[in-house]
Nucleic acid binder design. Structure first.
Lengths: 342, 342
DNA sequence: GTTTATACCGAAAACGTTTTCGAAAATACT
DNA sequence: AGTATTTTCGAAAACGTTTTCGGTATAAAC
């Protein structure tokens, strides 16, 4: 039952552990004959190197950490998939931790990953995170760090993002293009920069088109678990406050779907009475009725890109070259569907 | 930049590495005074034990592996969340691998996890998996193995499941109770046992209620990525084949939603013309219209339970006690919604 | 004052691998 | 033949921790 070790192979062949190790790794200073013998015996004994020992010796774990606000989430689970698929290709394993949008948990998890000595960390920060000491800890230890989507601009590391502002601008412009005259916005809270950027994009589009920006048309919702409910609530409130809104750009698909549900229940027709654009392109949005126009946020690609960047930096560190941080902006696309049919 | 080691602490305090190690772990044979000194210095130097060395010494990694068919999936991502949340409480990290419903990948991943020497493995097997040698490898190595949802009955290990047959029976009975006279079934393929069990539950319910079982009312769909499309297709086919079906029990919510979409497009009213019950209780099902009656499949709880069981067995192994396998069946519940309003 | 018990410490081995460096053996060159 | 070169091997150190076991020093018991 004991796992096979180099020592056992060595003893059986009456050679040294050193030679066995070198034979298995194709060192040039071991003869073809012994290489053959060693490899054969290793195979029949089903030898698997002890990762613990290898890690200790090489100071590498071939493992990376991923800290993510939520797992049960269309966008994030796509990112996870992207990261894992790419990591696998390079022989890396991925440890996943969930911050639950809590700064404390996020901090704790970073600590865990560091003490686990992962080779690198990918993170999308929690909404509650405003202090970045824990992230700088990572950088101080010269471990590569890549942030995606929800980033901290002040932390000096690579970032994979989309241009939220531009995407929001496109979404709003689309509403304008199809004839909306009075466009509301359901935005997220104040903390993830993304919400701010999307709001700014919305505002800019209005201004650029000579339409007045009216703060009373902007409703805030604190995303999280009750997004759907908040969408419904805001929809009701909007109807109560205004009677001439004919378009809404909504921060997130889930909120948008909540709003649509409420509108339907109250007899407001979409897209006839109000046109709606969401954000993220959750699968769900293509399935509800009316199907929801939205901004496609490339989760899978973002995950792949994040790992690729991390890999680059891990290699650089290994070769003692200076690693350089970059910011990669992925393209988004407007997906036109029924909720904005004109 | 070098990480702090026991040796450094020892040198600074002019004591031995042994004592430092013991002090940090509160061994009884080191004085209160030195314990205090050691712990203080360890804290100021921000000492973190080198996991590689600890692992090598203790032969434990405090890490478990999770092999799952798909990640971007409401049920499975809930399971992941359940496992991670529970693992975290016990100080375990989780490495996640995706089999993509492929036997080959699954096998490879198990190998990876074993050579990584995780302390245990949780798995939901791929649809394509019919050979279980790779799983027996895990058991031979005396590593705890827990399977959930999609299990292999022949492998001797603990299993966390639901009673698919009973749940399907309940779903079908519900359709009968609200007056359906001719009930169709969209089932999954032949391989995951779950599809078979759900089909059997459907059939049994019909028989128990004195209704004829008609094979032409059973449609097969090979789940996977195109579930939604298959739902649409089967709906169309059903309408073409029969004109008096008034209820359908569908293997999976996603297929059900596809079917509903198609029915709506073809002018078939739900629930007036046809009543539908799905399976899984995806979030989406509570959001589409009409909302979908379905069987709630407790993913989060399943994940938690799976880890708890794995933990028990890992502890048993550690204490050299015999680990015993059990089968835990979690309760499901029928969630009545608009798609079966009578 | 000697013995016995107790409290505290440290040397050393072990976990399994990788890699450096020197030595031995085999081969090639005068 | 002797010398130089190449091939092939292995001893040993190192990675950082844990744990066993024996050894002092101190306190308690007689």
């Amino acid at each position: 039952m004991k796992p096979v070790t180099l020592k056992e192979i060595a003893e059986q062949l009456n050679i040294s552990v050193t030679t066995v190790s070198k034979a298995l790794k194709d060192y040039p200073d071991v003869s073809k004959k012994t290489k053959g013998l060693v490899k054969e015996l290793a195979k029949t004994l089903n030898y698997k190197p002890n990762t613990f020992a290898v890690n200790l010796r090489t100071k590498e774990s071939k493992t990376i950490g991923l800290v993510i606000p939520v797992i049960v989430h269309h966008f994030f689970s796509n990112v996870i998939k992207g990261i894992i698929s790419q990591a696998e290709k390079k022989g890396y394993l991925v440890i996943i931790l969930q911050s639950n949008e809590s700064y404390e948990l996020e901090k704790k998890h970073i600590g865990l990953l560091l003490s686990q000595r992962v080779d690198g960390i990918i993170i999308s920060i929690a909404n509650g995170t405003a202090d970045f000491k824990h992230l700088n800890d990572v950088i101080v230890q010269e471990k590569p760090l890549v942030m995606f989507d929800k980033i901290a601009k002040l932390v000096k590391c690579s970032k994979i993002i989309i241009d939220d502002r531009k995407a929001a601008y496109t979404a709003t412009q689309h509403l304008i293009d199809i004839g909306c005259k009075r466009i509301a916005h359901f935005r997220g809270g104040l903390l993830p920069q993304n919400s701010i950027d999307r709001f700014l994009g919305y505002k800019q589009a209005l201004i650029d088109n000579g339409m007045a920006y009216d703060p009373t048309l902007v409703y805030i919702c604190e995303l999280g678990d009750k997004s759907f409910e908040e969408g419904k609530q805001n929809a009701r409130q909007l109807l109560h406050d205004h009677d001439n809104v004919d378009g809404i750009f909504i921060n997130t698909d889930l909120v948008a779907i909540g709003a649509m549900t409420e509108f339907k229940a109250l007899g407001v027709k979409i897209p006839e009475d109000i046109k709606i654009v969401g954000f993220s392109n959750w699968f769900m949005s293509s399935v509800i009725s009316p199907t929801l126009t939205t901004i496609d946020q490339p989760g899978y690609k973002m995950g792949k890109t994040a790992f690729k960047q991390l890999y680059k930096e891990m290699k650089a560190i290994k070769n003692k070259k200076p690693k350089k941080s970059t910011i990669i902006t992925l393209e988004t696309a407007l997906v036109k569907r029924e909720s904005t049919k004109s």
